[in-house]
Simulated scan of single mutants.
Amino acid sequence: MAFAGIVLAGGDARRLSGVDKPMLPVGGTTLLAKALGALAGARAVVVVGPERTGLPELPALTRVRERPAGSGPVAALAAGLAALPAVEVVVALAADLTGVSVSTVDKLRGALASAGGADGAVLLDGGGHRQWLIGAWRTESLRAALPADPIGASLRRTLGGLSLVEVGAEPGESGDVDTPADLDRARRAARGH
């Protein structure tokens, strides 16, 4: 089944002193490149965030920005959806993930396909928390869930009412970088320490 991807690559990284978090190198590649690599096989990929250089050259890569810039993940998701071609399934990923891979995307898509009428499949971290930006979604369900005004809307409130399949994460698979300690831990893990 054809799918498309959206990578949310905005945000202000306050806990990391405002650094361009998606462009941080971990294990020889940037976090954004890691997210893009996890979407290999997607019919199209949309990166929502500021203009950046040094992104991998992908034939079906589109770059957009939520309006206004910095108006939150629901607004970014809406901007990404608006830029996608017609596909049945969209995989949404954050651009600060350290453990996401092609196999993560494949298992989410497989769980959604085998779930019948579910609207989406989301990864559960080791603590049992839904990772809203590691998910596969039926495109029409995702569009229908978006509020008329997505600016500043809560991602959990927007997506939480949908019918979901929860998919358990392998150790480290749901890891992300929010703090300097997270970045240090991710870099040590990438070096095998």
Score class of each variant (00 low, 15 high):
A38Y: 05
A169H: 04
D184V: 13
D149K: 13
V102H: 13
R187Y: 06
K21M: 05
L81P: 03
G160H: 05
A115P: 13
R67K: 13
S163V: 13
E57V: 13
T179L: 01
G117F: 13
D178S: 12
S101L: 08
L123H: 02
R52F: 00
R43F: 08
L36M: 03
E88Y: 12
G168D: 15
G27C: 01
T30A: 09
L159C: 10
K34Q: 15
L164V: 11
S17G: 13
L155I: 14
L93N: 00
V177D: 08
D119K: 03
L162G: 12
T139P: 09
V167R: 01
L146G: 02
A95P: 01
D178M: 12
V64Y: 07
K34D: 15
G18H: 11
V167F: 02
L84I: 03
D182Q: 08
L61Y: 05
T53E: 15
G116A: 10
A153G: 03
V105S: 02
A190F: 00
A136V: 07
D106M: 13
D182M: 00
A76Y: 04
L159P: 11
G152V: 11
D176S: 15
L124I: 09
P50D: 09
V167W: 01
A148M: 12
D178I: 11
A33F: 05
D149T: 12
T29I: 09
H193V: 14
S154Y: 01
P85Y: 05
A181F: 11
L155F: 11
R15C: 03
I6R: 01
A144L: 09
G27I: 00
R143N: 05
T62A: 15
G80D: 08
D182N: 12
T98G: 12
L123N: 05
E170L: 15
E57I: 11
E140Q: 11
D106T: 14
P180D: 09
M23W: 08
V102T: 14
